[in-house]
Each structure stands twice: as C-alpha cells, then as structure tokens.
C-alpha cells in the first residue's frame, strides 16, 4: 500500500508513468486489498472527474494521487464506503495534494541551491544524488499523509457515513455523476478557439445517436481533423491565400498562455 502511495506521489509531480491517475492507483490499491474490481470501479468513476486536471506551464492543478490511494483504501477496504462517497471524499483530498505540491516546490529550494554549489565544485555525483533525494521527497509527500489517514479506524468511517442525513447521501450520489462537467470544462477551456467550437457541437450532436460507439466517433473526429488541417483556406498551405492564419493564431494563443503563467 505504501509503495503505491509513494509511486503515486512521485508521479503526481513528474507525470510520467501515470501511477497517480485514479484508474491506475485505485485498481492497484484494490488489488493489494484483494478487491481489484471494486478498486477499478472507483478508479474509473474518479478518472472521469480528474482527467481534466493538468499541470500546464507553472500552474499546479489539484493532485489526484493522495485522493485516489486513500479513497480506494476506504472503498475497497474494511470501511466499505460506497463508490459515490469515495468520489466526493476525493475532492478535499485532491486539494490537500495540490497544497502539498505547492509547498514542496518552495521547500525544495535549499536543495536546489546545494546543487549549484555541487556544480561549481564539479561534483556531478552530488547533483544526481540531490535529484534522487527530491524524487524521494515527492513520494513522501503522498506517502506520509496516506499513512496518517489509513490509520483511521474503519468503524469511524462506516459510522460517520451512516450518520449522514439521507439528503446529503442522495445529493452526493447526484454530484458523483455531475462533477464530470468540471473536467470537461477544464479540457475545453484549454483548447477551444473560436474556429474550433463548431466541432465541439458536432461531436455532441453525433454522440446523442447511441449507435455510434466511442471508437467510431474517434474515427470521425480524426478524419475531420485531417481534412481541416489540409484545407487550404484555413491553414494557408496554398501559396497565395492569406497564409498560415490558423496555425499562427493557435500558436500565439498558446504562447500567451505560457507567458501568462510566468
């Protein structure tokens, strides 16, 4: 369990193997508890809520690592909370994870300054060591709070859940299904340009026909993308049209975003 927490914590920052993604982390925790299917079910539900959380530029999004590990422990473990409750509890935990990421980015500064000294001295091994130490700290960032929360007695949680009024329990169930909209909105917000909005509505309209599978919709979208990018009037690949209009604007907007972040 603690190994999973460590890996998730590290990956929540380096963003490589994606151990911090709920669909991976929750399943692994479920596996460790002998309930892989419960873990995977929670992971899939949580994944739909967290996929829009991305660390772009210098900004820090809520961190799913701690949230995924702990809620899976509570849902697939002895506390046996329902999946919806796990999804709701993930929100405050993701916020704690975000704070810990922000905090560590400050706390790590002395360590980086030590790397400067090592570089001046030409001590390359020390630089490597410092980097590995910081990776360790990133893992502990999730491991320590996880260990703390896991030591809560399961009875308390179960009892706490049964103490909740029915209104809240029902409301949480509704929210677990509705919270996905924030993720969608975050993704859309990072990519939408005036010219691309029509494709969003096209996708929406086509998807209301249940006969089209997700894969089929994916194929349609790729076909549209290939056509759109090749279209001379839009991308300016033609020699005499107002050239390169669309690519340049997206590039400029992307650059602006990067600059905003700094």
């Amino acid at each position: 369990m603690l190994i999973i927490a460590f890996l998730a914590g590290l990956d929540g920052v380096v963003d490589e193997w994606q151990f911090q993604q709920p669909i991976v982390a929750c399943t692994l925790v479920g596996l460790a508890l002998g309930q892989p299917l419960t873990g995977a079910a929670l992971g899939a539900s949580l994944q739909l809520i967290t996929f829009g959380w991305m660390n772009i530029g210098t900004s820090v999004a809520p961190d799913p690592a701690l949230a995924a590990v702990i809620t899976a422990w509570w849902v697939a473990g002895t506390a046996q909370l329902p999946v919806e409750m796990g999804v709701i509890l993930a929100l405050p935990l993701a916020w704690v994870g975000q704070l810990s990421t922000l905090g560590l980015r400050q706390l790590i500064i002395p360590l980086v300054n030590r790397a400067d000294q090592a570089a001046t001295a030409g001590d390359l091994h020390r630089i490597s060591r410092l980097q590995v130490v910081s990776a360790g700290l990133q893992g502990l960032r999730t491991l320590l709070p996880a260990a703390l929360l896991m030591s809560l007695p399961a009875d308390w949680l179960t009892a706490g859940y049964h103490l909740l009024p029915a209104v809240l329990r029902g409301g949480f169930r509704v929210a677990a299904g509705a919270l996905v909209v924030v993720s969608f909105a975050m993704v859309i917000n990072t990519m939408a340009t005036r010219k691309l909005w029509p494709f969003f509505f096209l996708g929406f309209a086509l998807a209301t026909d249940q006969r089209l599978s997700l894969l089929a919709l994916g194929m349609i979208s790729i076909a549209l993308a290939v056509l759109y990018v090749q279209w001379p009037n839009h991308t300016g690949s033609g020699p005499n049209s107002p050239t390169g209009k669309t690519p340049e604007t997206t590039d400029d907007e992307a650059l602006d975003r990067e600059l905003d972040d700094f």
Binding site: F200, L202, G203, I222
Partner: peptide
C-alpha cells in the same frame, strides 16, 4: 479539434 470533438 479531435479533443474538442470528443469532449462534445
């Protein structure tokens, strides 16, 4: 474009 379409 693909991303927006699929979000929709």
């Amino acid at each position: 474009l693909v991303g927006l379409f699929m979000m929709g």
